[in-house]
Design a protein around this nucleic acid. Structure first.
Lengths: 200, 200, 200, 200
DNA sequence: GATGAATGAGAATTCATTCAT
DNA sequence: TATGAATGAATTCTCATTCAT
């Protein structure tokens, strides 16, 4: 059904190859340090070819980020919009983000989370631009949250998500559910209700 | 009476001049983008002079960061160690960090918070390396917190502090106390107890 | 028929162009004084291009030197290993070295012989690393020389060869054979048997 | 008797200090690599002070070289002019040069002999500009040598002296007399009469 | 479209020398 | 004269981007 010329296939394939290489390089060297040349070298392609697909490192990054955002954002929105309780809402957000962060360990999660461009990107993913704030506002309308500063709450959720993801990365800790639960409890009921740890 | 020779004064002055220029340039262009040359150009000094004071951009940044860390860390530790309640502990941390972030609007806060080096630096300031985690552990001994994963809690606090500071920066919002209170309530008692907003 | 693509040709040509330029510049300004920029400027190429071919000035020099060593060393070894008498052995060494030094008047010989890197290079050529010493030892086995300190003898031969080559260069004297004969006699039978000069 | 103002003493002392430092630095890093700054740093003096005494690195070197030349040249000339036989003449030259080279192990001899400026300097010392050639010519008049190309002979002697000094340096061999004898025999009667070695 | 060498602007850094103190 | 910080020209090298094949 899908009749593509060989050329088209190659074309799309190269795009893919570059994106994957970029992912690896960003993950290894950090977005900042990585050079276009590094990306090309991680590829069987020639340097000039890069510019047939992307105009710059930034553009590759954007593509990479958008790719993820496109997969993750709808998931997040759906879960949040379906949430019946504040617990559902918050837990969905953390669970989805943390499990994505983990699943993408070799790709985006492996990218230094603190890298500024990258961070902006990740934030965009979690918050979905302003998805999170809007979802919070909608949820507030539905009575899930008390009336509060949605933007600040969104910021807090994002902040926690990032830092906790980073701790998980350092610990090479993989119990996403427990981490997500920790975050949710913290946001929902505060430190007093956070589940007591045995040890990690 | 004039204990410092003119020379020494000039020398110290130049250091200051470079640090201030760096601050401005980092703030304007971001740490990443900024070049040593940019810093020099923001200065009446010659290029070589820079290298009489710092060996690289990294070193200037470190000096800038340490300057702040030196002022802020002791404050934070003292307040947290004196805290009689979890509220005191958490509130002190947020208040101090957010007010510092604000006070330094032209300096570090103005530096792109999302820049990775910068962010690592700021994290070091707030957490003081591991100050925060250790303080949480000590406070837990004192019974201020239930037994919990101190590292995760520290991460959560840092995450919130950052993101909220950033929102404040964007809003050019100056009510530090309200923001600090918001953060504290969230951490302590969760979203349900966060003070209801009129609007900003 | 045209086995090498135009591209490959250009590439090889550029390498040649750089080597030749380096030769000229080294010869004119001395290896020490010469800068990579000087070499580039003696070329129609762009500065970056240099670094597509060589990593540094040192590397160009090494290439230049090796080029010569590759041509000269085998010649020398063969002649010396075939030598039936001490006379043959010594004469071959001087003749080959001096004639090479002369033939390369525009290339290596023109390079300041006294420059240390250069000199080390030339020494490597004449002695071929340790070729000369080893050849002397082998010749001693064959009974061409009395048992003696091969390393010192090699050193003496090299020393004479250099200095005499330098005198020839200054004199723009071209009678290689006479110079070689002079050196050989000196080494073989000493000053008393050196052929009496009219004058130069 | 020698009434010098303190100032004059200091002045001469500083000159000395710089010369000694330069010697050490040249010896350690090589003339080429050494920078004026290195020399200054090897001194308790300030950078500006250097320029009260010397205009450049070259000038320090020249002073250093001349100092030695002034000590060594007269010795050499005297010995050579007094020489009754070719043996005396040649042996005196090698012995004096090699022993000087050795005695100055921490100073000039330690300087990379192959460094071009240095080499030119050393050559000047051994040959004394043209001393050696002139002395050879004079000795030839006296019948010590057959009529021959004095310049070439001088060159040969210098070449041998240098290379052998270098071998000695590498070997950390200290038997100057044996080395000098080797060189003399070689020059006087050639390889066949060079004393047979046991081993080094 | 793919190739990969050429390009050259630009960044970091060094260091001989000057000059105010 | 001594000091040592300031100077800035000069150098090396990198890397995004172009372009002939």
């Amino acid at each position: 059904m899908d009749i593509r010329s060989k050329r088209t296939q190659t074309k799309e394939n190269n795009r893919r190859v570059i994106l994957d290489a970029a992912r690896g390089v960003f993950g290894r060297d950090g977005y900042r340090t990585a050079t276009v040349r590094d990306i090309i070298n991680a590829t069987p392609l020639a340097s000039g070819t890069f510019y047939n697909y992307f105009r710059s490192k930034e553009e590759v990054y954007a593509a990479l980020r958008d790719e993820i955002a496109h997969e993750v954002r709808p998931l997040l929105r759906t879960e949040r919009q379906r949430a019946q309780t504040a617990d559902d809402f918050v837990a969905a957000t953390f669970r989805t983000f943390l499990s994505q962060a983990q699943r993408r360990a070799q790709s985006l999660a492996a990218i230094d989370l603190r890298d500024d461009q990258m961070l902006a990107g990740m934030r965009m993913i979690v918050m979905g631009g302003d998805d999170l704030r809007r979802d919070i506002e909608a949820a507030t309308e539905r009575g899930l949250f008390p009336k509060l500063d949605a933007e600040l709450l969104a910021a807090a959720i994002v902040g926690i998500a990032f830092e906790v993801a980073d701790v998980m990365r350092q610990r090479q800790h993989t119990d996403v559910n427990r981490a997500a639960q920790f975050c949710s409890e913290l946001i929902l009921r505060g430190v007093t209700s956070v589940p007591v740890e045995g040890d990690r």
